[in-house]
Design a binder for these strands. Structure first.
Lengths: 191, 191
DNA sequence: GAAGTAATTCACTGTACAGTGAAAATATCC
DNA sequence: GGATATTTTCACTGTACAGTGAATTACTTC
């Protein structure tokens, strides 16, 4: 891609902008984040943002390009599936190495159709491909909707709304709390 | 309140503004909604908004003042509790007589701390008071967090993110899909 | 139907912002 | 070390907006 053709310097600048943009978009949403503020955080001139990303909208698109990193769960015994799902699902939210890109996506999806489409696409792809091996294509498709709803509910409640007690629980306790429900969903579809 | 002192005409204007505001806030979020656009929808002059609500922020606060209308579930047999919960919870979203005020609250809570606080408060009060009679204060407090998370997940997925298939299901089918999980949550806490 | 009050409109201010383009600084190559 | 290309800064434009206050219109009451 174009990135490969860039000098190390512009590469660094580009990444600094992206990092700053993710922070701002995650904290304030799309509208309230200004190019100027993002540029200030990245310690560069606002017009650099235009140079590297063309417009605020394109910068946003670039910032949205994140990943759940759900592993392929093929071979995971049914018994352990709920635990594995919740653990892997929560991981990118908990240790946000990428400046909260998951939070950014969830928050912005609430008010921005572009982000919503991105999130829908991402959830669909990653859930079905992660579960296909373990459940078969048919059951994966049938379950993924309600599984996504439950996990999104937890993520929204914990990371965006910060509703107690869900927001305060250690991850392990949270996983224990949710696991039975996931198990129920997977079991209900078994028959 | 001040409303009682107003003429019928100003009462009507006030309500027209509020209705228009809820529509816009629900559709576009706080930032992207402009006083001008709200005024246009309500077919009045932008400065009327200022007259009646003081500022965009105060108008927003007024628009957020909504209710889940969860009934007191005292006396509902445990067996029927999940069904009753999901049905009553979904109702205000489904038939949005109030111009989508629930959607407005959920959407805006994602990026607006004022709305988030409002939603947290509302969920806490309404869930605990609705369940206290049926479960006792202790169990109500213990369950309400995870119940809220699950129901918020469904609402977010269906009404805000519009992720399929959850977004397309008839309410009854959706209720059937979620009921087992709610039952699991309530059962898990029983011991 | 005139006097007074409440509701509404209008013209305006200041500000914050996205985006532009030319100039300056910095690196790269011969 | 001068020429060329790339990165960065700077000064600017136009626009959209929240909010203000005076002028105007519509109601009410006597």
């Amino acid at each position: 891609m174009a990135q490969q053709l860039m000098s190390a310097r512009s590469q660094r600048t580009r990444e600094a902008i992206l990092r700053a943009a993710r922070m701002h978009f995650a904290a304030d949403g799309y509208q309230r984040s200004t190019i100027r503020a993002i540029a200030a955080t990245a310690s560069i001139d606002p017009s650099m943002v235009m140079r590297y990303f063309g417009s605020k909208g394109q910068l946003f698109d670039a910032a949205l390009d994140v990943d759940l990193h759900l592993p392929d769960l093929t071979g995971t015994p049914a018994e352990l599936l709920p635990q594995a799902l919740i653990t892997h699902f929560l991981a990118p939210w908990e240790d946000d190495l990428d400046e909260g890109s998951m939070r950014l996506l969830l928050r912005c999806a609430a008010t921005n159709e572009r982000a919503a489409e991105h999130l829908r696409q991402m959830l669909h792809e990653q859930f079905t491909s992660s579960l296909r091996g373990a459940l078969g294509a048919e059951r994966a498709a049938a379950c993924s909707g309600i599984l996504a709803a439950q996990l999104l509910g937890v993520a929204f409640t914990r990371y965006v709304l910060r509703l107690r007690p869900i927001a305060d629980l250690p991850v392990a306790a949270l996983a224990d709390l949710v696991t039975p429900s996931l198990r129920t969903v997977l079991a209900a579809d078994e028959g």
